[in-house]
Design a protein around this nucleic acid. Structure first.
Lengths: 151, 151
DNA sequence: CAAATTTCAGTTCCACTGAGATGG
DNA sequence: CCCATCTCAGTGAAACTGAAATTT
């Protein structure tokens, strides 16, 4: 995914010092750690996102889940198929609108989510490890202001 | 690339508050702005990265360029083909090792690079616009410490 | 009949891999 | 003979698109 080891400090200053470049590099690293962590448990980020949305907001339609977890409708469908196979979610038809599936997290799903939560927490720790607790707070506050600015 | 409008504040707190999530969102936004900006000039990020590396380090082999610009050898080859078609770089065989191409930026390339520099600067400004000058400095300093921690 | 939801197949885009060609 | 470099075709993953099936 575009990360060649790149002996530190070799990139042109023109790139190296760009905010967008640094953000991109940090993202690459975070992404890699997450993929690796999830894979160790046999999952992917999409699984986590959907389980987290279900856990936090309760049963929901697939469209709603897609909005919550910021996922394409198509990826929601295939990821839910996968989660259903593993008995971590259950689908039932919405009685009040039979076009709709109501997706519910199972207890196995809740249990797995707790385990993935630990993976995710470990990655945050790993990623932020160069910063002191106070600096992490400062960094995250600033990051939140950038992030909040998205539409 | 995974960005569905997502009415603000809908994501689960479990995701929304994660450093990795915020970084990912900021990266998506930055990436989108860059792609859009480069496209307006008829280029892509790869073009900019290679031109910047050439401008900063002078003529180089393709392998070297790949390391500088953090690009796959294959992407280097095809992107250079493109830049050569547009007369922005020139390839010549290294006399001391005829397996090697020496890639040189042309004056047209230098001129185009200046124009892409303006695009890139505009994106940095846009991305960081929610922060004051002082906060930008703080943010970038912290970001650099995370970024530097990569191997 | 028009609109919404889910699903599936197909497309597109991107990055990487493997191997051939050239040369040291 | 083996290694390095460049190139290109092919592979695989990821996300999106279009359309069918179902129901409102």
């Amino acid at each position: 995914m575009n990360d060649i080891p790149a002996p530190a400090g070799e990139a042109p200053a023109r790139l190296r010092d760009l905010p967008t470049w640094m953000i991109s590099r940090v993202h690459q690293r975070a992404h890699g750690l997450l993929v690796e962590g999830f894979a160790r448990e046999g999952f992917r980020g999409f699984h986590f996102r959907l389980l987290a949305a279900l856990d936090e907001f309760g049963p929901a339609s697939q469209v709603e889940l897609g909005q919550r977890a910021v996922m394409d409708r198509s990826d929601v469908a295939t990821t839910l198929n996968d989660l259903a196979d593993r008995k971590m979610i259950r689908r039932s038809v919405d009685a009040s609108d039979r076009r709709r599936n109501i997706v519910t997290i199972t207890s196995a799903g809740t249990k797995q989510l707790a385990s993935l939560d630990r993976v995710v927490a470990g990655v945050q720790e790993q990623l932020l490890s160069p910063l002191s607790a106070a600096d992490r707070t400062r960094f995250l506050r600033l990051l939140a202001r950038l992030h909040g600015g998205d539409s």
